[in-house]
Design a protein around this nucleic acid. Structure first.
Length: 788
RNA sequence: GCGCCAGUGGCGGAAUGGUAGACGCGCUGGUCUUAGGAACCAGUGGGCAACCGUGGGGGUUCGAGUCCCUCCUGGCGCACCA
């Protein structure tokens, strides 16, 4: 029975050359694809280029080449490299996101999203990468630094385009449960990223005013312990009550401290009324309150929150215990009975929360509230080399999202890329136009889309890369989700979350029946290699180092070299292995098999010379085996070949590709050990079919010479009867410890076996005069004799 | 700090609760030779042995690398998320 299999590897950024990481990624996918083709499945296995993005602009400045020329040239070279690897890819599906043929459809999708209320523009405090001179999404800021440049990110207030991913927060979270073929780890990371918290929103009345301050809390049960309010410096109440200069000063104070975690607060000249008690509590501007989470304001309950406790101690604020705890030590954030809280005394946390929220609702001062950490996705980038956003602005400041018949908005080729900032902004003749619909002067949006937008739907476009619309809904329903998506763990959050959002958003716009884009996700491990350094800590390439009298010496200079740890291949550490060089000295098949040999594909693979060499040796060994023209068949060969077929199939399906390699060794060890020569027998054909996905070149050449054929048979059906071996080695245990094993056949009864093993000295000595209390007999598996 | 994952020979790694160490690398001895980035044969967890061995300690079980508790170590992720 044939079925469709969409096998996809994450498409590469065309940086110039493929590296070993790509090779491993694509070999894994290629093995799957070839296997499924042999199974008779209708396999989709495309490849394309994630071709927009900053490196092209940087290269333009550095090498004085145009980003487009640079990119297209890189694509050409990398395509050549991939083809050298003989990957079985559907090149007729190829696409590059920087081509008009791709991005014009993306502009259409932008319009769709806008019309569906999922794209909007707002002034926002954004993360500004001063090196790349562009805005970054929250998830592209890591430890306060740009994910690409590593530069300290600044805050800037800019008008930006956003995608309303938060509309799908709940579904993006619950959808994870249906992804049973995704690594737990990735799901956990997404779950944490989405960050759902269930709690309450509570209104605090500002004293001497009719205004309220909203706060979000997950612990409304501790409301009686609230002794202060803290707000972020960016909170509205701050700009309402202080002048710009003082706010700037506070911000400077906050950023000047060396210990980021040190709590700082500035008391506002305002108080709040406690919602339940007849007392006033102070409002502080505090450095530890996040303006991007919840309402940017909290109530402080020092007795039951570590941060609030620290803050209260520093500013001598009262600490009121409202939850009972065993040792009485504060702060205590665990569960316990509520105390000192008139409405809630004696209740457990869960009941207390329910009761107090109901009370708030009745009084109109609060509500249940679910809060998400996930923010909307900022997609504006102040860059030239990206997909133009199909929007124009008028002189009065209003804007219009273009209609589909006004597309495409082409990226102009002739731009000045010198200097910093966005080249489109300086391209007056492109920017300025007369709006054909309104017949007045207009200016194009000069921001381009985040390249993560490009990769959020490329797997849809692959289904028909020539279609005159983004995709065909029927095809999406029939051919998605991607059955196996293979790529690096580094995309665990960004790319995969955005793609899931696109799938869902476009599903709702176009009415697809697909909820998730990737049914199975497989994250391959990176490739590491030894590192070496001189005494001055300069990196040295491994091939320059030789071992001499137990010491490591640099060949050229005779310097003594120290060996460092195995690390991810990187140019700066000089431990990179170039695929082109390896391919020319070891060949495709040896390279392929080494990529899967030494560790499971989802774990790190250490590059070693011995490893690649032994892969090469295996290729020679198989060649030698089949070049023997003898035909000599031993009993049991069929069973062994059957076992081989069965195991290798199971292991391909599980991505246990390292075990496939072991299966190949095991088979040839057996054949050679038993001096079985199959030559051009049907069994040889079967074996060749099964090694074809892993070693295609070798299988093809042997198939040619033995059978004079270019074709392989379909993947053989496994005859399960042949897998059952009547001869067994039965372990005998006494008191659960292995004493001996006996060669026997299946099906003997407990009595028969016991009778025969009592004759064995080993057993008799062990038992001697002891009484046998019990015998555990797992038929044909093990016998365990229990004595007193 | 919180969360997740993992700890098995000299190394990479195998083991539906049922013979721990498949398979490979390395190593040791040997064979052959057009002296090779070969190939072949034998061996290779520790211990002379009885036995002991899957990070430590407990537990469940006839039986634990595998399940439970606890601690240690390492990796990854998140990190003032109220």
């Amino acid at each position: 029975m044939s079925s469709k299999k969409y096998i996809l590897e994450m498409f590469p950024y065309p940086s110039g050359n493929i590296h070993m990481g790509h090779v491993r990624n694509y070999v894994i996918g290629d093995i799957c694809a070839r296997y499924h083709k042999l199974k008779g499945d209708e396999v989709i296995h495309p490849m394309g280029w994630d071709a927009f993005g900053l490196p092209a602009e940087n290269a333009a400045i550095q090498f004085k080449t145009h980003p487009q020329d640079w990119t297209l040239q890189n694509i050409k070279n990398m395509k050549r490299q991939l083809q050298k690897l003989d990957l079985d890819l559907d090149w007729d599906r190829e696409l590059a996101t920087c081509n008009e043929e791709y991005y014009k459809h993306q502009q259409e999708l932008f319009i769709d999203l806008y019309n569906a209320g999922l794209a909007y523009k707002k002034d926002a405090l954004v993360n500004w990468d001063p090196v790349d001179q562009t805005v970054l999404a929250n998830e592209q800021v890591i430890d306060g630094k740009g994910w690409r440049t590593g530069a300290e990110v600044e805050k800037k207030n800019l008008s930006q385009w956003f995608f309303k991913i938060t509309n799908y927060a709940e579904e993006l979270l619950t959808g994870l449960d249906s992804l049973d073929l995704w690594p737990e780890k990735v799901k956990t990371m997404q779950k944490n990223w989405i960050g759902k918290s269930i709690g309450a929103e509570i209104k605090f009345e500002i004293s001497g005013s009719t205004d309220f301050l909203n706060i979000f809390t997950t612990r409304p049960d501790t409301i009686y312990g609230a002794t202060f309010i803290a707000v972020s410096v960016n909170h509205k109440i701050v700009s309402d009550s202080l002048d710009k200069k003082s706010i700037e000063d506070i911000k400077n104070t906050f950023t000047s401290i060396s210990d980021e975690k040190e709590k700082l607060g500035i008391k506002l000249n305002l108080n709040c009324k406690h919602p339940l008690l007849d007392k006033e509590i102070p409002i502080y501007i505090a450095n530890f309150v996040l303006d991007t989470y919840g309402e940017g304001a909290i109530f402080g309950c020092p007795a039951h929150d570590e941060r609030d406790f620290e803050f209260a101690n520093k500013y001598s604020l009262p600490i009121i215990k409202v939850v009972e705890c065993e040792d009485g030590k504060l702060p205590f954030s665990g569960e316990g009975k509520v105390i000192n809280s008139p409405l809630l005394n004696g209740l457990e946390k869960k009941d207390a929360i329910e009761k107090i929220v109901n009370h708030f609702k009745k009084e109109g001062i609060g509500n249940e509230k679910v809060n998400f950490k996930l923010r909307d996705w900022g997609v504006s980038r102040q860059r030239y080399w990206g997909c133009p956003i199909p929007v124009i602005y008028y002189e009065d400041g209003t804007y219009r999202v273009l209609d589909k018949d006004e597309l495409p908005v082409l990226l102009p080729y002739n731009v000045n890329l010198e200097g910093k900032g966005n080249a489109l902004l300086k391209k007056e003749d492109w920017r300025k136009l007369t709006c054909p619909k309104m017949n007045k002067t207009a200016f194009r949006e000069t921001d381009t889309l985040d390249t993560f937008v490009d990769s959020s739907w490329y797997y849809m476009r692959f289904l028909n890369n020539k279609l005159n619309s983004p995709f065909d809904s029927k095809q999406i329903d029939n051919l998605l989700p991607v059955d196996k998506y293979i790529g690096g763990i580094e995309h665990a959050i960004l790319h995969l979350l955005y793609s899931r959002f696109f799938m869902k958003a476009l599903r709702d716009i176009y009415g697809f029946n697909v909820d998730e884009p990737f049914k199975q996700l497989f994250t391959q491990g990176m490739i590491t290699h030894k590192t070496f350094r001189t005494s001055k800590n300069e990196w040295v390439m491994p091939k320059e180092v030789v071992s001499k009298n137990g010491a490591l010496i640099r060949l050229k200079t005779k310097e003594v070299i120290k060996e460092g740890p195995c690390e991810k291949m990187s140019k700066s550490k000089k431990n990179v292995i170039e695929p082109d060089e390896i391919l020319s000295s070891y060949g495709i098949d040896a390279t392929r098999i080494f990529m899967i040999s030494d560790s499971p594909p989802d774990r790190e693979l250490e590059w070693t010379d011995e490893g690649i060499q032994s892969s090469k040796n295996l290729i020679h060994r198989i060649e030698r085996y089949f070049s023997n023209e003898k035909s000599l068949v031993q009993n049991g060969v069929e069973e062994n070949v059957e076992k081989f077929v069965h195991n290798i199939e199971k292991n391909i399906l599980n991505f246990s590709l390292n075990k496939c390699v072991a299966d190949i060794y095991t088979l040839f060890n057996y054949l050679e050990k038993t001096k079985t020569f199959l030559h051009n027998s049907p069994l040889s054909k079967k074996i060749l079919t099964c090694i074809f996905p892993i070693l295609p070149r070798l299988a093809i050449s042997i198939n040619q010479s033995l059978f004079n054929s270019k074709n392989f048979s379909l993947w053989p059906d496994v005859n399960l009867d042949l897998l059952i071996d009547d001869k067994i080695i039965l372990p005998i245990q006494i008191q659960g410890k292995l004493v001996t094993t006996i060669d026997t056949e299946k099906g003997y009864s407990q009595e028969e076996i016991l009778k025969s093993i009592y004759q064995l000295d080993k057993i008799r000595n062990k038992i001697s005069d002891k009484k046998i209390i019990k015998v555990i007999n797992v038929q044909d598996k093990i016998i365990n004799i229990i004595t007193n």
